[in-house]
Amino acid sequence: MTSAIRMGVLALLWGSGFLWIKISLNEGLTPGWITFVRCLLGAAVLLALAYGAGQRLPRHRGTWGRLLVAALLCNALPFLLFSVGEQTVDSGVAGVLNATTPLWSLLIGLGLGTERPLRPARLGGLALGFTGVLLIFAPWSAGPGLMTWGALALLGASMSYAAAFAYMARRLTGRGTAPLALSAAQLLAATALSTPALTAGGPARVTATGVLAVLVLGVFATGLTFHLNYRMIAEEGPTSAATVGYLLPVVSVTLGALILHEPLTARVLTGMTIVLVGVGLTRVRTKSARRAATAGAGGQAAARGPAGLPGTPPGRTGRQPAADRS
């Protein structure tokens, strides 16, 4: 499989997660059930892959404690928030708002002191990215704007991802546990954490279409995408894997329009473009920083896992070993 084909397949599977969430909701499944089944199926896929690779689940109690925090911030909570948000917001817009995660990550890094003072290009990218978000929300609009609780839930999911990445980079990665096993353990923990949500939102309606949608979401858009992304960073490097992230909003918007007939408004498309340009600018590095990142990536990629996680937007390379989400 050529690099371009692999990248296209990964972007399609990864970016389609928002579509499967929307279809599951339309067929009567509740956000709690979607979250639980997604975590369970993703964990099953990763457990099978870890077993096939000869990797064992972590045994240290402290590691499982950190996994619970990571599972809450990176899986159970954002998965639930995305399902809640898509009850009232189009799947395409959900994919666009998911792309703001690197912007929140940068703000968190500045707050924690892990990011150096921003150069003009990165500072401009941060401002531009949030300008795009503001354009999408259009709080000044008298028409059907996006200043809703559903849209805020989607932004909350992106913030949760950003907080998770900051936590995992400090407390979970690079501690000797094989990445597939660590990711399987994290999704197992997320399955347990999402169990209480099964009782929320009333009874779920089970249909063949809804079951199929959540099966694809859990097996392909969660479990399998992690494996494919892991393979990509191992074989082609973190830059290629990170590039896939820029395609995710485009995939979600296109699938939403073609399959669900969601409207493609000029405001949302313009906002998406501005957000992605802003995210790209925040990834600008000096020559010395690029040399350091390149030197570290070769030795750390296989140990730390993929560049981005299923559902994670562009710009997070070589840090997260644990399975994620859209």
Rank of each mutant, 00 (worst) to 15 (best):
L260H: 11
R325D: 00
L188A: 08
V219C: 00
L172N: 07
M272A: 14
F36A: 08
A71V: 12
L260P: 08
V69A: 14
G176R: 05
S288Q: 14
A293G: 09
M147D: 09
A70D: 05
A48Q: 02
V93Q: 01
L106P: 02
G113K: 06
I233M: 07
F220L: 15
R59D: 06
P313C: 01
L57V: 06
L255V: 03
L81V: 11
A162Y: 04
A322Y: 10
F79T: 05
L193G: 15
G311M: 10
L41Q: 04
S326E: 13
F79K: 03
R6C: 07
G132I: 02
A189C: 15
L97C: 04
P117L: 02
A169E: 12
R231T: 10
G15W: 01
G109A: 01
C74T: 15
M168N: 03
P321E: 03
R319S: 03
L281R: 11
A295W: 07
R290G: 13
Y51T: 15
G150V: 00
A142G: 15
P310Q: 01
Q55I: 09
A192L: 13
L182A: 06
R316L: 07
T148C: 09
A303R: 11
P249R: 08
G32N: 00
V133C: 04
L80Q: 05
M159G: 14
G8N: 07
A157L: 07
G8R: 05
V84S: 10
L182D: 03
R56C: 00
G174S: 10
I108Q: 11
L217Q: 05
G8W: 07
R325L: 10
F137I: 13
V284C: 06
T35H: 04
D90K: 05
I108R: 11
G28M: 05
R171W: 09
P314N: 08
P144W: 02
L258R: 13
S24E: 05
P238K: 12
P310R: 01
A138Y: 09
T225N: 11
M7N: 09
V93R: 02
G271P: 11
G271D: 15
R304L: 13
M272S: 12
A181F: 06
K22Y: 00
T312N: 12
R66P: 03
V45W: 04
R283W: 03
I274T: 05
E115D: 07
G145I: 05
R283T: 09
W14M: 14
P313V: 01
L264C: 09
V89G: 02
A323I: 07
S105T: 15
S160P: 03
L41H: 05
L281I: 14
H227C: 09
P238T: 15
L193T: 14
T239N: 08
L228C: 08
L135E: 02
T148L: 14
M159W: 14
T30M: 09
R316N: 00
A184M: 10
A127D: 00
P102K: 06
